[in-house]
């Protein structure tokens, strides 16, 4: 798209899509903004008029607000760390020539196809159940007292469940990136006297930089709004109440649409802060 004519043609062509997307985004956002300035209690009187910034102040100053922000960030951070580190390791492993490679690859990708609700229920009942769960049996086998995962290590449990779901995604993206690495570069480094770990550090990792950036950015978008995993496991108790879950409680359990909307706006702001930080840290990799 070098010439003036082709640029304006391109703009014209893109317009319908951009307008549709904008409308799709703007309408709900504007409605949220609208409700956030109202006292709106559907089962207790409905629309009770404008209240200014009341909802914002109440949501912000409630004792649940900061813990929920922290819980959200801990989950996002924990899952990102696990998926990126294990994603790289798995991708390297899957890149090695081995028997039954095709089947193993499909198996590794499989968790991504399982719905979040289902996978969370499976984890909750089959693995983490303190009486019948596989982990409980394992602990008992070694003579230890079973852990009540979802209450004693609630945050860890949620992070494990969500990381398990997202690991295939990270692995897949990183695997394609590893496969695109020119093997002659690794051989050149080998001849230059770099031992395996240095080869990984100096050649493979920089090559993966961009793929890691993509994984981190995309996962962050989805992880900021995880809900089902919390809903079917801890229901927000034991310190696992994320911002999303808090908003859900305000809107549906307390039937306070105005307060929930204000929380929604806070969530948007938080997402943007996180996005700006991420762009600062990793986004520059996308420029090159």
């Amino acid at each position: 798209m070098a010439t003036k004519a082709s640029r304006s043609a391109a703009r014209l062509m893109m317009a319908p899509a951009v307008i549709l997307l904008l409308g799709w985004m703007l309408v709900p956002l504007c409605m949220t903004l609208y409700f956030s300035f109202k006292k709106y209690l559907p089962l207790r009187g409905g629309d009770l008029g404008w209240v200014g910034f009341d909802n914002y102040v109440r949501f912000f100053s409630s004792s649940a607000f900061w813990p929920s922000v922290i819980a959200t960030l801990v989950i996002v951070g924990g899952v990102l760390a696990i998926t990126v580190v294990f994603g790289i390791l798995l991708a390297i492993l899957l890149d090695q020539p081995m028997w039954g490679q095709g089947i193993v690859r499909i198996l590794v990708i499989a968790p991504f196809f399982v719905m979040p609700t289902v996978s969370a229920l499976v984890w909750k009942n089959m693995f983490m159940d303190p009486v019948n769960g596989l982990f409980a049996h394992l602990w008992k086998f070694f003579g230890a007292a079973p852990i009540e995962w979802l209450s004693q290590a609630s945050m860890t449990s949620i992070v494990i469940i969500v990381a398990w779901q997202w690991l295939p995604f990270a692995t897949l993206i990183l695997l394609t990136a590893i496969q695109s690495l020119d093997s002659e570069q690794l051989e050149a480094a080998e001849m230059d006297g770099a031992p395996p770990l240095s080869r990984f550090g100096y050649i493979t990792l920089p090559h993966l930089n961009r793929a890691i950036t993509v994984v981190v950015l995309i996962q962050t978008i989805f992880l900021l709004s995880i809900f089902a995993e919390i809903f079917v496991t801890t229901q927000g108790s034991f310190g696992t109440k994320t911002l999303t879950y808090l908003i859900y409680q305000r809107v549906l359990e307390s039937q306070n649409v105005g307060l929930g909307s204000a929380g929604g706006i806070f969530a948007v702001i938080l997402a943007n802060i996180v996005a700006i930080f991420l762009m600062r840290i990793v986004g520059k990799n996308l420029d090159a």
Binding site: A189, E190, M191
Partner: peptide, 17 residues
């Protein structure tokens, strides 16, 4: 190992980092 043979190689694709 290749590194210890004391040989240097120039590849067709250059293989620069």
């Amino acid at each position: 190992s290749p590194a210890k043979r004391g040989l240097a190689m120039v590849f067709q694709s250059y293989a620069l980092y």
